[in-house]
Amino acid sequence: MEVFLQQLINGITLGSIYGLIAIGYTMVFGIIGMVNFAHGDVFMVSSFVALIAFLILTTWLGVTSVALALLIVLVVAMVFTSLINWTIERLAYRPLRGSFRLAPLISAIGMSIFLSNFVQVSQGPRNKSTPPMVQGEFVLFTKNDYGVTLSYKQLIIWGVTAVLLAAFWYLVTKTRLGRAQRACEQDQKMAALVGVDVDRTISMTFVIAAALAAVAGTMYLMYYGVVSFADGFVPGVKAFTAAVLGGIGSLPGAVIGGILIGLIETMWSAYFSIDYKDVAAFSVLVITLIFLPQGLFGRPDVEKV
């Protein structure tokens, strides 16, 4: 029971990170029908930006307040990652819109290879570990010498995720931009006819996706304290699994799918074998796609002649 509760806490934390990345996949897939393969690497890049921003703040500018530092790091990572993703969309995906269906996917795979190798070349292949940013934890209860703890880091991740999801929810359902996004998702030509700037809306979608990935990247760095150039691929695929599990195109689905994947992974590590935890996540992806291709909250794909 104690183990279960502890893993529940860990799983939700990990799942929040996956959920934030998964939103990026699901939004982009919803609006242009493309699996944005480079999104995992955009997440990794954002983690590096956060690392550098954190080092500048603490070692050069001497910011001692951790809360302030984290807030600034978050904003800086969001701004730079958005800029990067905006440029990627502009250079690598936009010229291929309306081209045949494999072209953007191949372009995205190339971009993914480019980004991870760019970071490897520019920052070196070694793992980068930071001193712990936030320390301390609540001990919820102790039984048989096994204390169930909720660390401050985990609380911060929950809080930041919840606040950002609320802001994001407002953006998509209540604002003009969100309405334009939903319109483009349904029918781009029609949306263009009634005056929606489709190109701009798609650009904004990539910017929002990148901003959420940057939040995930910052949280990832804070939680694990270590990042390397190769850290984009596996979280990327897991987040994509989350998006598929929740029903691709569905925003609440992405978050719930993310939390489910996080839970499956931590529970699997605790009760079965830690070596095979990635196999478990990939198997979930396969099983979902075969038996429930529309996901938990998605619309079934209608086949048209």
Partner: peptide, 16 residues
């Protein structure tokens, strides 16, 4: 790095 770049470049210039 160049491999990834070339993939993107060829796709953009000659998507087919």
């Amino acid at each position: 790095l160049l491999f990834g770049f070339a993939m993107v470049l060829i796709m953009v210039l000659r998507p087919r």
